[in-house]
Each structure stands twice: as structure tokens, then as C-alpha cells.
Design a protein around this nucleic acid. Structure first.
Length: 654
RNA sequence: GCCCCGGUAGCUCAGUUGGAUAGAGCAUGGGAUUUCUAAUCCCAGGGUCGCAGGUUCAAGUCCUGCCCGGGGUGCCA
């Protein structure tokens, strides 16, 4: 049961006698921030006091007299300017624990208003290997699906694969010109990856060659501008002087920027030039950029040979991505990639035109929107469609196919403007009944505060990130188990895999998704503090008690044994256990899994205190021992369930 | 230029949409172990919540201005 919801329910009839719209007042009932004030607090007397011109404490007293809470709260206390402090009675606590203990859902009722959600997440380009840029969408999206499903909603997960763009033109071109037949027949995916990289290197080489003179020129211009600004006499006007100083600083920044750009371009050029084979390829394929576009265009136009190659490559590329999903334990209900919508794009543009929403501008088909300075382009000058077009077609299909109440896009927050435009256009096309939500998230940064890269400046591949995490976990598991000697080598490896992947996922989920976060191997290696490991450890300790005591916990759970509360640590643990459903609801309300990580950390901490202070197996009486065993059982199940909703597993021993 | 996001302890970050004395982890210092798993627990120090105004019973939270950082900004996704 959700205690908070119940308290609100009790208050609602009383509050409606004080205000026409009690909803905002009800929202002022919440868990206390400081345990000294009880368990829950109602803060509505203060604003009412102001509104009614009466002392808030009087109003609080009046409300307390009228609200019926006797069956589950101790006598409410009025404190400070008019806070109403509530403390849940032990009798009620115990009754709730009894319900939860026998319930597979731990007392969490499914929502009374189930909705249908489509969750769009992960969405990698299949031609490239997945890298650190995909981890947040994948991990957060998966957790949201699990959470919403558990809350009782219908959830459809859809991996909107990038399986149709230029990257396939690149592979096709590479296959036609550079393939190693033997390598392809034995290790096709590896060979395709090599071809992609080779073509990419050549593209970057030529682009760099073309861009370098412009860069040099821009750099020279900027330098001149900077010199002039520096030489200019200081203005007497204070404001002007300040503006000049800022201008100078901006110039320095863009100079540094340009230098960095030049360095990157030079590196790409050097990479090709220092490799004889690559240099030869670069010389004999001067028009590769156009050629790749042509291959892409041919594929899109239905060219038989390219289409056949695509049919051949796609499953292999997809299979290599699957390895990552398998490691992470992630799956999807549907995978309608970009290619799926290819045939529908023309219709989308026609529709927009027919409705008078889109018009030609500089040769491109554009939708202009009042709220945005730049238009949404749905067809390029050269006739090609863009991802905005695909996204519109995708919305139309999803509405038709699943009639969702909401579509969640778990995508990097830098694409906020794109989604702003997309949703605005969708609304104009008559999609008012669906709640379109961009679930944005921040960047993964390295310890230098810049986006995480390898030493050579590449995106960090996801498989190496996972391997690192598991390796780090393995080192830690071995170090700790050296003394304890609980685990066989096989078990150590299993534990390392579970703990390593959990550490990686948790590091992402514990963060408020909207902010950037600094990724640190060191922190992950530590596996201490607010980490998944801490929760997994707490879980293992619950199971270890059962094993040590030779307890058949399932039969105890269904026996007549009862839970009792004697020590403060028991009460704190019990109270925390009953807040599970509140935490889940918070996650569902703003699509932020970090509410749940925070809850689980609190729960695990309370359990650790309980574990220290309340010996289970050596309890004074059998009844007390059974009661504590049941508390351990509920704690273990809640941790396991909570972690599962985050896509994280537990182990029985670690 | 315009738009969006951020600035909270030495570091990494929470802060339940305006509530009581601003929290956690790490790091630092001290303490607890014949252990139901010490991957643990307890205690301590550490803050101009970027700056300045405003709104009100109450502001880290809302409004205005400014400073600093990041991101986006018509034919990539």
C-alpha cells in the first residue's frame, strides 16, 4: 500500500472544506526530511492561515481534530508555525508488513489508470559498433520500461535502429573496393567493421585536405582580428571597456577552438599518410565522398545489387550489436529501424504540403514554426529525406499500430530543439491525444570534464567499457574473497560479471538523468558507497543468514510466524520497506530512475544498521528470530525487485 | 546574435517542484571486529547554495539583472 497516498486520501475531504481546489494543498503532504519530525508531514496550514487570515496553528489543530487517522497514525503533533507531524503507528506498520510479506508484488498495487507507453531508446547505428554515447539511452530506457511495466502500464519498447543511412553506403563502397574475401567469409562482422573504418578514414582524409586551407585562413583572420582588438586603445567608457574585454576573451576562445580543429584534421590526414596502403587508396579514390553518396542513393532507390548487399550485411551488423545487449541483459519488443519507414517518407511530405504546413525554401521542403527561428526541413534540396521526416512517419505508424497514450524518446538532451519542432509539427498534424515526451539526458564526461574519449580521441567502445567494468569487479572480488574464501573460481567470475555490469549501469542510473556526469573507472572499481554493489552485498547478507541458519525462508514466509517491532533499527527498516511504492511512483511521475536508486540505498543502509544492531540467528527468543528473519526476507526481496526494475541482477553469495 | 541547460562541502553529485537546523558518497581524522559476509557500522571536521536585487508566513527551489561554464542554432543524426 502507498501510505502517502492513503494519508492524502484521508485529508482530502477535510481540505476541500477549506479550499475550492485542494489539490495543491494535498501536495504539501509528504514524507518528512528529518526523522525527528515523525514519518510524514502536512504543511497546508500555513498557506491556509494566510488565505483565511487566521493563525495557522489554529487551523492545523482544527484539521487534526477532523481528519480520521487513528487507525494508522499516532496522535498528530503540531509544530513550529503550523506543521502537522504524523507518525505511523506500529500496529499499522505491522499490518502493512504482513500484507507485503505474502504478496508477490511486495504490497505495491498496480496503477488504477494503466496507460500504453511506447518507449523509443538505444537506437544505435548498426553499421558502427556501439560506444559510450549509447549507454545512457540504453540503460535509462530499459529501466523506464521495466518500471512502467511494474507499475501496471502497457509498455512497448522499440529500438529505432539507424539501419538506412550513409553508413551503409560506406560499407557497400568499402565492400566493392577494399574487401578481403577470405576475411569476410570467416569473420564477416569484423571485416565489415574494418571496411567501415577504412572508408571513414579516407573520407576524413579528403574532407580534411579540403578543409585545411579554409581552417588556416580562418585561423589567420581570427589572429589578425585578435591582434587588432588587442592593439586597440582602451575605451574610457567603462561599459564599452568591459564589452571589449569580453570580445577579446571570445576571440581567444574561438582561436583555441580553431587550433584544436586544425590539430584534429591534421591528425586524420597524418593517419592516412603514414600508412602506405591507406595513402595509395586515398590517391586512387579521390572522389570517394561523392561515390559513397551515390551508393547510398542507389540503395535508397532500390538498386538490386546494393539492396542485396544491404540484406546480407544488416543481420550481421545487428548480430554484433546483439552481443552488447546480451552482456547488458537488454531486449526490445520491436525493432522498426529507419529502413522500415523508407517507403512512407514521400507520403509524409505530401501530407504536410497538402495541409499547407510545408513549403519550398531554398529548394528544400520546410515546415516553419512560430516558436522556432529555423524551420524543420523534411526534404533536402537534393530530394533526400531527413531524420525529421522519418520521425514523423514513425509517430504516425506508432499511433496507428499501438494507439499509445504517450511516446517517450530517450535521447541525448542536445536534440531538444529537434524534438520541440517534431512535437509541434505532430500536434499540427492532429496528434493531440498522445503525450510526446523527450526524455533527455546529459553527456558522459571524462575526468577532464570533456566528453569521454579514448586517448586517441575516439569514442570509447561499449564492449571495452563493459569488459573494463567486469575486470575491475573481478579484481575486487578476488581481493576480498582472498580472506573469506567463500567462492570458487567459477563463482568469482559469475559474481564479477553481475557486479561489473551492475556497477556500470548503476553509475548511470544514480545520476539525475538531465545532468552531465563524470565517468570514473576508479570510482566504479571502488564498488563502495552509493553503488549497486552495496545493495547487492546487502542482498547477499540476507541470503547468507538463511543459509547459515538452515532456514527454509519460503515456508517461514507462509507460516503463522509474525513480525514484531522492538528496536529502533527494526522500526526504521520496516518504515523504509513500506516506502517502496512511493519511490516507484516518483520514478513514474518524472521518468527518473534515480528516485529508485536513492530509495534502495536508504533501504540497504537501514538494513546494514539493523544487521549490526539486531542479531537474527542469535535472537533471544524463537519468535523474535522469526520476526527478524521475515524482515530480512522482505528486505532481500525488495532489493532484488528494485534492482531488477533497474535492469540489475543480484547474486546469492559474494 | 538568439535559444536551452548548469553553477550546492576539497572532489563527484542529490535536493521529492516553496517548508523546520541544506544532504549523501568519496577523500580527511578518530573509533568498533573471537562477525548471522568488515564490500560493514559509529563519531568528527568541512557551506556566502555563482553575484545582486525582488516576490512571501517561509527561497538552494519562483521572478529580474549580471558573472562563469556547457550545449544547440536550414539541408548530419
Amino acid at each position: 500500500m502507498n501510505i502517502l497516498a492513503e494519508i492524502k486520501r484521508r485529508f482530502s475531504s477535510v481540505l476541500s472544506e477549506y479550499a475550492d481546489h485542494p489539490a495543491p494543498l494535498l501536495d504539501m503532504i509528504r514524507p518528512v526530511q528529518d526523522a525527528r519530525h515523525g514519518d510524514y508531514q502536512a504543511n497546508c496550514a500555513m498557506p491556509l492561515g494566510k488565505k483565511l487570515g487566521r493563525p495557522p496553528r489554529d487551523i492545523a489543530a482544527e484539521m487534526v481534530a477532523r481528519v480520521d487517522l487513528a487507525d494508522f497514525c499516532q496522535a498528530p503533533e503540531i509544530a513550529g508555525p503550523g506543521f502537522i507531524n504524523l507518525k505511523i503507528s506500529d500496529a499499522f506498520l505491522l499490518a502493512s508488513l504482513e500484507t507485503a510479506r505474502r504478496d508477490a508484488r511486495l504490497g505495491v498495487a498496480p496503477t488504477a489508470q494503466p496507460k500504453t507507453y511506447v518507449v523509443d531508446f538505444s537506437s544505435p547505428n548498426v553499421a558502427k559498433s556501439m560506444h559510450v554515447g549509447h549507454i545512457r539511452s540504453t540503460v535509462i530506457g530499459d529501466a523506464l520500461c521495466r518500471l512502467l511495466r511494474f507499475l501496471g502500464h502497457r509498455v512497448i519498447s522499440d529500438n529505432h535502429l539507424g539501419d538506412w543511412g550513409t553508413q551503409f553506403g560506406m560499407i557497400i563502397y568499402g565492400y566493392k573496393h577494399f574487401r578481403d574475401g577470405a576475411a569476410y567469409s570467416t569473420q564477416p562482422v569484423k571485416e565489415l567493421e574494418r571496411l567501415y573504418k577504412r572508408v571513414n578514414a579516407l573520407l576524413e582524409y579528403h574532407a580534411g585536405k579540403a578543409k585545411l586551407p579554409q581552417l588556416e585562413q580562418a585561423l589567420a583572420d581570427k589572429q589578425a582580428e585578435h591582434a587588432a582588438a588587442q592593439a586597440a586603445p582602451k575605451s574610457d567608457d567603462k561599459k564599452q571597456a568591459k564589452r571589449d574585454a569580453k570580445h577579446l576573451k571570445d576571440l581567444e576562445k574561438s582561436l583555441a577552438d580553431l587550433r584544436k580543429q586544425r590539430e584534429v584534421v591534421q591528425q586524420k590526414i597524418a593517419a592516412v599518410e603514414k600508412d602506405d596502403a591507406l595513402r595509395q587508396d586515398a590517391l586512387s579514390h579521390p572522389e570517394i565522398a561523392q561515390a559513397v553518396l551515390n551508393e547510398t542513393a542507389k540503395l535508397h532507390a532500390g538498386d538490386a545489387e546494393n539492396r542485396q548487399l544491404w540484406d546480407e550485411f544488416l543481420p550481421q551488423c545487428r548480430a554484433s550489436i546483439q552481443k552488447i545487449y546480451d552482456l547488458l541483459g537488454i531486449s526490445f519488443d520491436y525493432e522498426y529501424g529507419e529502413s522500415f519507414y523508407h517507403g512512407r517518407l514521400g507520403q509524409v511530405v505530401q501530407d504536410l504540403e497538402k495541409r499547407g504546413l510545408a513549403r519550398q525554401s531554398d529548394g528544400a521542403m520546410c515546415v516553419f514554426l512560430d516558436q522556432f527561428e529555423t524551420p524543420m526541413i523534411v526534404r533536402k534540396r537534393d530530394g533526400a529525406y531527413l531524420y525529421a521526416t522519418t520521425d514523423l512517419a514513425t509517430i504516425a505508424y506508432r499511433l496507428e499500430q499501438w494507439r499509445p497514450d504517450a511516446i517517450l524518446y530517450v535521447v541525448d538532451h542536445r536534440q531538444g530543439e529537434h524534438f520541440g519542432k517534431l512535437f509541434a509539427v505532430a500536434a499540427q498534424m492532429g496528434c493531440e491525444n498522445v503525450d510526446l515526451q523527450h526524455i533527455g539526458f546529459g553527456a558522459v564526461l571524462g575526468e577532464d570534464g570533456r566528453p569521454l574519449k579514448t586517448r586517441s580521441g575516439e569514442n570509447v567502445p561499449l564492449d571495452s567499457l563493459i569488459a573494463h567494468a567486469i575486470e575491475a569487479a573481478h579484481a575486487e572480488v578476488c581481493r576480498i574473497d582472498e580472506e573469506a574464501g567463500l567462492l570458487s573460481e567459477e563463482q568469482r567470475e559469475k559474481v564479477s560479471r553481475v557486479v561489473g555490469v551492475a556497477a556500470l549501469k548503476y553509475a548511470d542510473l544514480v545520476q539525475n538523468r538531465e545532468s552531465d556526469y563524470v565517468f570514473s573507472y576508479e570510482k566504479m572499481v571502488a564498488l563502495r558507497g552509493n553503488t549497486a554493489t552495496y545493495m547487492q552485498y546487502a542482498y547477499a547478507r540476507t541470503q547468507s543468514i538463511f543459509a547459515r541458519g538452515g532456514i527454509d525462508i519460503e515456508s517461514l514466509r507462509n507460516s503463522a510466524a509474525v513480525i514484531s517491532i522492538n528496536e529502533p533499527a527494526e522500526r526504521a527498516l520496516a518504515m523504509e520497506l513500506l516506502r517502496f511504492s512511493e519511490a516507484l511512483e516518483e520514478c513514474g511521475a518524472d521518468y527518473r530512475p534515480n528516485h529508485l536508486t536513492g530509495y534502495l540505498f536508504e533501504l540497504a543502509k537501514q538494513f546494514s544498521v539493523f544487521f549490526e544492531q539486531c542479531h537474527v540467528l542469535k535472537a533471544e527468543t524463537e519468535a523474535l528470530r522469526d520476526s527478524r528473519l521475515l524482515l530480512c526476507d522482505l528486505t532481500g526481496r525488495t532489493i532484488r525487485q528494485g534492482l531488477e526494475l533497474l535492469g540489475i541482477q543480484v547474486v546469492e553469495k559474494m
